[in-house]
Amino acid sequence: MSHLNLLMIGSSTGGLKVLEVLFPRLPVLNAAVVIVQHITPLVDKSFVTSLQRVSVMPVSLAQEGDSLQHGKVLLAPGGVHLYLVNNQKIHLAAGERVNSVCPSIDVSMLSVTPGRGGKMVGVILTGMGRDGADGIVHMKKCGSVTIAQDQKTSVIYGMPKAAAETGSIDFVLPIERIAAKLREMFG
């Protein structure tokens, strides 16, 4: 199981709209998919339902102790931080807001450990603020390919811009091209 491929996606304002463009374009990926969307506990279940409608991969709300599996999508629940344990399991914990949000993309991405043979990709999509910028720098250092959404297809270009400004982004792409890049890497 040490060769797990991992796709971490961070999104905020406009995230559902953008993910509903991305997911219909993705096959079952040869990667475990973790989405950290700035979301409240009241909205997270309906968010999962919306994604289930457009995704060929099963989508569920992450739960404590879940194992990451190729071809499965886990969404960080609202109101708690999601950590990866050895890039294999999910740990959920209450905590202070980071970058004024909980769940925080940075918290999740900073918990990634350098790949042990698996491919890793970090993606920052539409959103306000700079959550995900520190996380994407860390993921790049861990050997990940890093992608930020372009300004034209972002609802709000705060987070992808902050990520791009770190100098740690490999590709700045419109959402359709992000789908193509992910198919190429994990198809």
Rank of each mutant, 00 (worst) to 15 (best):
L7R: 10
L7S: 07
L7Y: 04
I9K: 11
G10H: 11
S12H: 10
G15T: 04
L16G: 00
L16Q: 07
E20K: 15
E20Y: 00
E20T: 13
F23K: 10
P24H: 06
P24K: 06
P24I: 09
L29K: 10
N30K: 15
N30C: 05
A31N: 06
A31I: 03
V34W: 04
I35P: 06
I35K: 13
I35S: 05
V36L: 06
V36Y: 05
Q37V: 13
Q37Y: 14
I39A: 02
I39M: 02
T40A: 06
P41R: 09
L42G: 02
L42K: 12
D44R: 02
K45C: 00
S46N: 13
T49H: 12
S50M: 12
L51Y: 09
V54P: 04
S55F: 02
V56Q: 14
S60C: 09
S60A: 15
L61Y: 01
D66C: 08
D66I: 03
S67Q: 12
Q69D: 05
Q69I: 09
H70Q: 14
G71Y: 12
K72E: 03
K72C: 01
V73P: 01
L74C: 04
L74F: 14
L75M: 13
A76T: 04
A76Q: 07
L82N: 01
L84D: 01
N86A: 15
